[in-house]
Design a protein around this nucleic acid. Structure first.
Length: 482
RNA sequence: GGCCUGUUAGUCAAGAGGUUAAGACGUCGCCCUUUCACGGCGGAAACGCGGGUUCAAUUCCCGCACAGGUCACCA
């Protein structure tokens, strides 16, 4: 049996990190960490057509951004290398030959034409397409004969004809398939290269992988894998199949259809840790009611038992909510550090940055939103006088005009334009009018910002802008309303 | 089409043979001596359908529907 928990992530280098893949990597990583095991990164780059320049670097950098570290991999080495599948090609054939010698696999000389013929016949018969085992019965003389003729061949695994193969998936439970459903799968292609399925089993065994975490699309081929392990008398790893991350009830999230990759999410302003936290929750749930977990905390809490069987639809609103929680949990300095570039990009005039941070921290969902939220500071945007109308506050253009006319006089005479002083002056003013706060504060906020939504209240904004700008903008509003 | 798998509110999800069927996001309403995108409180909203088994089923079993996956010398 396996001495140690060893999991792996085996992406092919596509040039981006798919959300579903990242989640698979996360689960594999967490499982290893939780059990003081090893997490291995193996690059499956045997699909030459799909090769993309620099794609391996994307894998490294994305995982690093996510905080996922690996104990063995192409860049860090390890005792079970090489960790790049294309460098392992010499390994596989000898294993297949062992199976042939043991009578558990055989050479198949069937032409592609013949295979296609039987397939189309089966299809016409509405039977599942399956290799008919034509070459299984070839005698060793016949095989030697064909070999000496230089005939090309593939190596196929002999599947049992009767019985069932079943296994227990950690997520899906018992899964069983009738052996008669199974095809004599190809292990080695006619060019001498292994098929993905075969290489995978060999690599996982050689790398002593104890738990295979992967997408549920492999669920129905898992019995085939098991039969391979059995043919070699190897320990079968535990399987953890994960249902896909969907964009809606019918379609998977996919880059090809324009859906966000991990990198895309970071580019539109989501914090890597928030994304990791969110996708951990997509298809897995912790015991209690807590939702916010750092990676370190996830390493402790993670439990395969919490993985859910059904597909999960990706909901960016939930991500946004989690992102804002992460922002709120930042210290003021962390917040400033992250927000500074965005603030600077739209605010050139000097403002009290600490005051601004206080205002923004609890209201920011995504740093990328900041420039458009703050652009009013430098220049008052064009706005419609209709903004002054608010049913709930019972403000109208007329009431706003009246209030602002009086308010501007009050504000002109305030000595100390600090928040506390301003607050007491304005509330005294509100008192003297005998109206609800909103009747004054709403028009103030609109006049000062020209916006419907702002990152703070009217008083805060006035304080931020300072006396001159505030008075100036109130006068503009009065003109507009008059 | 064969086979495998899944189905709790709009979404993520907890859950158990007997529960007022959690929680979160979203949504709606109310509150706020800091007005809106903050905060607080509250509301609406779910066990796909049909049969069994059982005193009792959403929970177990069987069908059906719907959805996904898989059936390559692709990975």
């Amino acid at each position: 049996m396996f001495e140690k928990v060893r999991t792996r992530f085996a992406p092919s280098p596509t040039g981006y990190m798919h959300i579903g893949n990242l989640r698979t990597a996360l689960y594999a990583f967490l499982l290893a960490r939780k059990n003081n095991g090893d997490f291995i990164l193996r690059i499956e780059d045997t699909d030459c057509e799909r090769k993309v320049e620099g794609a391996q670097d994307v894998i490294y950098s994305s995982l690093k951004k996510a905080g996922i570290s690996w104990d063995e991999g192409p860049d860090v080495g390890g005792d079970f290398g090489p960790y790049i599948q294309s460098e392992r090609m010499h390994i596989f054939k000898s294993y297949a030959l062992k199976l042939v010698e043991a009578g558990k696999a055989y050479r198949c000389f069937c032409s592609k034409e013949r295979l296609e013929r039987i397939k189309s016949l089966q299809k016409a018969d509405k039977k599942p397409a399956k290799y008919d085992g034509h070459c299984k019965a070839l005698s060793s003389e016949q095989v030697a004969q064909r070999l000496s003729e230089g005939a090309s061949f593939v190596i196929r695994q002999k599947m049992p004809q009767i019985g069932v193969t079943e296994f227990c998936d950690e997520v899906f439970g018992r899964v069983s398939v009738k052996n008669s459903e199974l095809e004599d799968q190809i292990l080695i292609k006619s060019d001498g290269m292994p098929t993905y399925n075969f290489a995978n089993v060999i690599d996982d065994h050689l790398m002593k992988i104890s738990h295979v975490v992967r997408g549920s699309e492999y669920l129905s081929s898992a019995p085939k894998y098991n039969l391979l392990y059995e043919a070699f008398s190897w320990d079968v790893p535990k399987y953890i199949h994960c249902s896909p991350v969907m964009k809606n009830a019918k379609e998977k999230l996919s880059k090809r259809h324009g859906d966000e990759t991990f990198e895309d999410l970071l580019n539109i302003g989501y914090l890597p840790q928030a994304v990791v936290n969110y996708i951990a929750l997509l298809g897995w749930s912790p015991k209690g009611e807590r939702e916010i977990f750092s990676l370190k905390e996830l390493e402790e809490v993670f439990d395969v038992a919490g993985i859910c069987k059904s597909p999960a639809i990706f909901d960016i609103k939930k991500l946004a909510a989690i992102n804002s929680k992460y922002i709120r949990n930042m210290t003021d300095n962390e917040f400033l550090e992250n927000a500074k570039p965005y603030i600077d990009s739209s605010v050139k005039s000097s403002v009290d940055i600490n005051f601004l941070v206080q205002m923004l921290k609890n209201r920011t969902e995504n740093f990328k939103d900041l420039p458009s939220q703050l652009d009013f500071i430098d220049t008052l945007p064009e706005y419609s006088a209709d903004l002054f109308i608010n049913k709930k506050m019972k403000t109208t253009k007329e009431s706003s005009l009246e209030v602002l006319k009086k308010l501007v006089l009050v504000l002109k005479n305030v000595k100390d334009f600090g928040f506390d002083s301003l607050h007491s002056v304005v509330f005294k003013f509100i008192d003297s009018l005998g109206v609800k706060n909103g009747v004054v504060l709403w028009p103030l906020r609109v006049a000062v910002s020209g916006k419907q939504f702002t990152p703070g209240g009217g008083l805060e904004l006035a304080c931020l802008l300072g006396q001159n700008k505030t008075v100036e903008r109130l006068e503009i509003a009065i003109e507009k309303l008059a």
